[in-house]
Amino acid sequence: MSASIDIDGLTKVFGSGPEAVHAFGPSSLHIGKGEFVSLLGPSGCGKSTLMLIIAGLLEPTSGEVRVDEKTVTGPLTDIGIMFQDNTLVPWRTVWGNVALQLELRGENPSRHRQRIESLLASVKLDGFADRHPYELSGGMQQRAAFCQAMVHDPDTLLFDEPLGKLDAMTRESIRTDLQTLWLSKRPTVVFVTHSIEEAVQLSSKVCLITPRPGRIDRVIDIDLPYPRDLDVKSGADFVGHVREIQAIFHGYGVL
């Protein structure tokens, strides 16, 4: 079952004294099971920080995160995470990097051969399984990192700008894939992005985060029908949402 996530009065301050950086909060947010929630905001507003706290990889300064009503006190190990910088290791091939996720979990990757193969095929990397990351373009590396994050079949996903390094065309096609995946399996997704269009297209809910210190200022429900293909994107409702969000960021002094 995909998880529900509650963020409660969460604050993060890095360091202390005059050097302290107030990176995020205080903010609260409820993410229901199977929701697709985007964290949208300019760079430096604390999106990655928030995501890492949800994952249990960073301790909040105050407040707490609850996943399925349980307070997060350490790393969550049954979720899928795509970090902002990809976590491919240079000494392993694409195949080996995907397998690494399983091996670190004590599983034998050759037992999951078929799953790895179909994952790679789903992002069109099937011809590149035995290439090393340095032989791939930035976009291909990100697709490999996607497979690495998904191979243990998590039903709660934290994605930190997963499409950041992709060209516009690949980006569009992976968005569609991601949406198809979400519609079929209904994982809970927390999706960090700074693209308004991307957030509106994919999300059931978009959280607008103010510039430093980052706070979740508005939560906008996107009630457009799925699948949101090119037709939906050129429709007046879609454009209306994008305009609305643009106007709010304009108000923050960002746009």
């Binding site: 990889l57 979720i79 995470i81 910088d85 976590t87 290791v89 091996e103 670190l104």
Partner: peptide, 26 residues
């Protein structure tokens, strides 16, 4: 690298496995 450190922690791998699969080669 910090992200690799986090990746390893997110898998719940024990210290020995983390050492031989990631820390040592890195």
């Amino acid at each position: 690298a910090e992200e690799l450190e986090r990746f390893v922690r997110s898998t719940g791998a024990g210290p020995t496995r983390a050492f031989f699969k990631v820390r040592l080669p890195a």
